[in-house]
Structures are given as structure tokens and as C-alpha cells.
Design a protein around this nucleic acid. Structure first.
Length: 255
DNA sequence: ATGGTCGTTATACGA
């Protein structure tokens, strides 16, 4: 079973990339982020033709998340109950007995920004939300653009990124707090041929120079973590013309 | 590496 996450940075711009990638890789479940479209614009027909069920929580211009899967998708939940948020960042659903939670975590802009306060509040709410989902009895897979590089090694230049947005102590502590709920970072099963970065800035030729960060993650609750055999980044879509600035991450689970 | 690019019912702002 392949569980993937991919920030596509506009699904309308990236639909061909996604469809080609699905055909090649055949993931069972994919959490998609930054759809940048409304629900009625979601390409359900194209994905169905590709063999995928789909659910989404869309928003005009910004944010927006979706889950696509080869098995039927049930028990769809949108947003975090109890957290008043105008931004569409969370969708959860059950796929083949697995509770899939897919999130587009707040970027935060800079640690001095009011958006950083929002990011930390949001992460606090997300921890509570995951606590509830983990108590639901089903194994849980959390996919998403977390906008957090968990360790200095998850950056191309630890000195440059020290204390900056995506790498601050507060963000990293929040990420560890999620793991402490009983989730394992599937990155622990990194396979040797894969690099670890999942995002490269569009500017400065950052991808060509491999100036990246690891900010997209697949976290697994215990029964799934035990089955996780490998983690890798697929950089092929990042090499295409007009790519997303993120590459898909794939966690593969055995039986 | 502080510039440089993308995306969006845009022409500023978010990432």
C-alpha cells in the first residue's frame, strides 16, 4: 500500500502532472494540498477516469486540500471542529480501514509575522484534532505539507535556516508534539537512493542546486508504522516544465 | 541566498 502526499500548488495548473504521476506510480492514497480551487472546480471526472475516488475541501485562490484513493472513500470530515478558521486546510476520510488526515499547515511567513502566531495556534488545534482522530480506533495516516523542517539536517544549510520560519524552535517543538501523540514519521524508513528534501524555492535555481527543505510528511500510527517498509521523495515531477515547487513523498506499507 | 519565481477572478500578496 502506497500512501503519498503532494502539495501541487494549483491543481488546475498541475492536473496533467498529477494524472501522469498516478499512472506511473499507482499510489493507493494521496493527500493533496494547495489546490487553489473551489469544490465545484475540482476535476472529479478526470480523476475517476484515472481510477481514483476523490474528496476535497476547496477554497478560491488559496489553500484547499483533497484526498484521492483507489478504494472508496467514506466518513469524510472537513476542517477542525471547534477551531474557527476561514482557510481550508484540513480534510479527513476513511479509506480501506485507514483513517487518512490530510493537512496544509499554515506557512507563517516569518517568525515576526502575525501569521506566525496563527501558525502556532493552528498547530495547537491540530494536535487536539489528531488526538481525537487517534482515539477513533482506526489506524491513522497523517499526510501533509507541514511547513516544518523537523531537524537542522532537513535543510540544505542549517546555519542559514536556524531560527527562521519553517525551522524555528517553536515550530519544531510543535512537530515533536504531534509525534508524541503516537505517530511515527515514515521518513525513518528512508531508502538510500532518495534525497530527503521535498520542497525547493522557485527562485535562485534552488532545485538545480538542491537547496531544499524537508517539510512534507507522512506520519503513521503504530499499526501502520509497523508495516512501513520505505519512504522516498519522487523528484521526477519537480523536473518537469512548470512544476509544483514541492515533490511528492511516498510511504510504502507491506501487508 | 536575501535578488532572481510562481500562482491567483491578480496588477499585491502569499508562498
Amino acid at each position: 500500500m502506497k500512501i503519498a502526499t503532494w502539495n501541487v500548488n494549483s491543481l488546475r495548473q498541475r492536473l496533467a502532472h498529477l494524472l501522469d504521476w498516478l499512472k506511473l506510480v499507482e499510489p493507493d492514497v494521496v493527500g493533496l494540498q494547495e489546490l487553489k480551487l473551489q469544490d465545484e472546480q475540482f476535476p472529479f471526472a478526470e480523476l475517476e477516469a484515472a481510477g481514483y475516488h476523490a474528496v476535497c475541501n476547496g477554497q478560491k485562490s488559496y489553500n484547499g486540500v483533497g484526498i484521492i484513493a483507489r478504494h472508496p472513500i467514506t466518513d469524510v470530515s472537513r476542517d477542525m471542529g471547534g477551531f474557527d478558521d476561514q482557510q481550508k486546510r484540513v480534510i479527513a476520510a476513511t479509506v480501506n480501514g485507514v483513517r487518512v488526515v490530510n493537512a496544509y499547515v499554515v506557512n507563517g511567513q516569518s517568525v515576526a509575522s502575525p501569521k506566525f502566531e496563527y501558525k502556532l495556534r493552528w498547530l495547537g488545534a491540530f494536535k487536539d484534532y489528531l488526538t481525537d482522530e487517534l482515539g477513533g480506533g482506526a489506524p491513522v495516516a497523517v499526510t501533509g505539507d507541514f511547513n516544518i523542517a523537523p531537524t537542522p539536517e532537513d535543510t540544505h544549510d542549517a546555519g542559514y535556516w536556524a531560527g527562521k520560519i519553517l525551522c524555528s524552535d517553536a515550530e519544531r517543538a510543535a512537530f515533536r508534539g504531534l509525534l508524541e501523540l503516537g505517530l511515527t514519521d515514515s521518513f525513518d524508513k528512508l531508502v538510500a537512493p532518495s534525497g530527503r528534501f521535498t520542497w525547493w524555492d522557485y527562485r535562485m535555481g534552488a532545485f538545480r542546486r538542491n537547496l531544499g527543505l524537508r517539510i512534507d510528511h507522512v506520519l503513521l500510527s503504530q499499526p501502520l508504522a509497523q508495516r512501513c517498509a520505505s519512504w522516498h521523495v519522487d523528484t521526477a515531477p519537480r523536473r518537469l516544465e512548470r512544476p509544483s515547487d514541492h515533490a511528492p513523498v511516498v510511504a510504502e506499507l507491506g501487508t
